[in-house]
């Protein structure tokens, strides 16, 4: 993406390119896993080639049917979801979904989830050999599955072990996506960094629930679900801020980004890139609006390179 900084004689091209631990993105705007399907779902509404990266729906070794319904409940300025990682399994993903994405000039980041450390290792191996994958995003933070998932994300030692297992089985950049459902996000981030992660995604959904006061029963089929959307943004910004101070790894900021202003807040807190999630449901063009808004902001602030904004609130 290009625009121009300044409207006087020193017209300079905006530089939005970022490098997330080896993933070269032409701009810092990605999609959040599980909110953008495998790509084609949003192709009628935006030009996928304009995205910084596409992070696809969480993939597991075997196909998953997913949780019973209702899987989604709306709360104030947020949604609770318990999809249960419904996905066709890694083999079918590679055979059926990956080829479509190869048609675009956008890095494809595959989000992986497992019940065991072995699962993560096998997934890493299979996806690395598949071709067309730019990086892996390791989901150690899904609150909606019984085994694995968040369990790995809430224990720093386990998180490190998963990271090491993935690293040993791939040459691709490895992004580890952390769970916000922990006491110290920094403790987990530090361990994951030591274990060799190339970047960190912050945050996954916050564990929550809602009760129907008419029926006096939990509203969701799975009782609990992950909270996303604008309601979680302040928590996510705080975690990006904390991790940026302590860990020298690029961060993908996620959580309640609806507008460019939200995305800029994450970048100022220390995120090098951002991913747009729930906002896609409300506005299928949200990623493009965020991108255009960031460019406008750079022009206004007379910032030529996006990196000048990364972590600027700390300085």
């Amino acid at each position: 993406m290009s625009g121009f900084a300044g409207n006087d004689e020193t017209l300079t091209k905006l530089d939005l390119e970022v490098n997330i631990g080896g993933i070269r993105m032409k701009n810092p705007v990605a999609t959040a896993s599980g909110t953008f399907g495998f790509g084609p779902e949003y192709a009628p509404y935006i030009d996928l080639n304009l995205l910084g990266a596409i992070v696809v729906k969480g993939t597991t070794l075997e196909p998953r049917l997913g949780n019973p319904t209702p899987r989604l409940v709306e709360t104030s300025a947020g949604i609770l979801n318990a999809i249960g990682l419904q996905n066709p399994g890694v083999e079918r993903f590679i055979g059926e979904n990956l080829p479509y994405l190869a048609g675009f000039d956008v890095p494809v980041i595959v989000n992986i989830s497992g019940d065991t450390i072995e699962d993560y290792a096998l997934l890493a191996g299979k996806l690395s050999r598949a071709g067309g994958v730019a990086a892996l995003e390791v989901n150690i933070s899904c609150p909606n599955v019984k085994k694995g998932g968040m369990q790995f994300g809430s224990d720093p030692a386990m998180a490190a072990e998963v990271t090491r297992a993935v690293k040993q089985n791939t040459n691709l950049p490895v992004v580890v996506k952390l769970s916000p459902n922990v006491t110290s996000i920094v403790a987990v981030a530090e361990k994951v960094a030591e274990a060799g992660a190339n970047a960190i995604s912050l945050i996954n959904t916050l564990l929550g629930m809602a009760i129907d006061i008419k029926t006096m029963r939990p509203l969701m089929g799975n009782v609990m679900g992950g909270l996303s959307g604008p309601a979680i943004k302040p928590v996510a910004v705080r975690m990006v801020w904390q991790v940026y101070r302590e860990v020298r790894l690029p961060i993908i900021g996620i959580g309640g980004i609806m507008t460019a202003d939200d995305a800029i807040e994450f970048i100022l807190a220390g995120a090098t890139a951002v991913a747009v999630g729930t906002a896609n449901f409300v506005n299928p063009r949200a990623t493009m609006d965020v991108l255009e808004g960031i460019e406008k902001y750079m022009v206004e602030k007379r910032v030529q390179n996006i990196y000048e904004l990364v972590g600027a609130a700390h300085r």
């Binding site: 909110t35 729906k57 899987r71 409940v73 999809i83 896609n280 449901f281 299928p284």
Partner: peptide, 11 residues
Amino acid sequence: KIGCGVGACLS
């Protein structure tokens, strides 16, 4: 319950 309406969220 319809979330995205376009096939992306699986809700």
